[in-house]
Design a binder for these strands. Sequence first.
DNA 1: TTTCCTTTCACACTAAAGTACCAATCTGGT
DNA 2: ACCAGATTGGTACTTTAGTGTGAAAGGAAA
Lengths: 167, 167
Amino acid sequence: MLVKRAIGSNPDFFRSIPIALFYFYPMKKSILLYGLAMAVLLALLKFLQYKYLIRDLGIEVYLTIVAVFFTVLGIWAGLKLTNPKQVIQASEEKAGDPEAMLAEYGISNREFEVLQLMAKGHSNQEIADELFLSLNTIKTHSTNLFSKLDVKRRTQAVDKAKSIGIL
Amino acid sequence: MLVKRAIGSNPDFFRSIPIALFYFYPMKKSILLYGLAMAVLLALLKFLQYKYLIRDLGIEVYLTIVAVFFTVLGIWAGLKLTNPKQVIQASEEKAGDPEAMLAEYGISNREFEVLQLMAKGHSNQEIADELFLSLNTIKTHSTNLFSKLDVKRRTQAVDKAKSIGIL
DNA sequence: TTTCCTTTCACACTAAAGTACCAATCTGGT
DNA sequence: ACCAGATTGGTACTTTAGTGTGAAAGGAAA
């Protein structure tokens, strides 16, 4: 909808959208955002193409912009995809029953991730940056985590988590 | 602007770009390969452009191919860059004597006492009460302790203290 | 005695952590 | 399709934590 209103003047542009979205059909919101970003960029370039004489500058310039943009986008996507990976690895390190304890205390995945970074001495802002979340979200997670662990501070949470063997 | 509106719901995206580029910076070979892959693809497309009539299919198809390719490339880069994360922290693991380490870092008795209580998750006020000291004194001790351990927060102090074997 | 370190504490300030409440979206089952 | 839990965020607020500066008292060593 948003896209449609922005580029309404270039109907032939829409041919590219289904192509982009095709590859990611089974996926969810992030992919939708990906397609959207792609569409927007294409629209922008298309717009510039008519506005200025980019065609005269050569198609290479055109492609380079797209290439760089989507590389960055890809790196970002890659970083996002690897985050849940580390959690799995970390939770499998302990030979005990960390998973059982997490379930016992009703600690969710995200909460555990936050807990792990807390234990490494990271600040809420740092955790937010590393997980690509907002500071408020980290605060929410940590508050919920504290109530589940029945503690009041992050240092207590780390201490208790280690004592019950989930860290 | 246009792009920002499209991904507007996730402003963290833009914060992640410098992060991604930061990890990317020290890797010279990867950048070289990146440029090479880019050049090869551009050449290939250029070649196809003359060989067949891709231009008639529209610039969108052209761009879509490039976009998808470099997204995949970016994801690959992202995956590669996130792996050597945990190696860095393992460098300071010197399992040694506790007393020797205290001397090594110039940590005094009181500071160590404070550190121990910190590790148990106690607040500054609680520590002050337990040691019959004022809150300000605890703050002074902890500030000095942090500078000696070269950390900025109590959680980091506890983490580092454990890693160097004084806790 | 002088010097250095430790320990103690104060005040004023900034930064971070944490609480409370709310709400939208997403996800996994039933 | 609906629902419970998970995830993500926001606002406004209170509480701790941490910094910078200064200072006083005691002990140990030169």
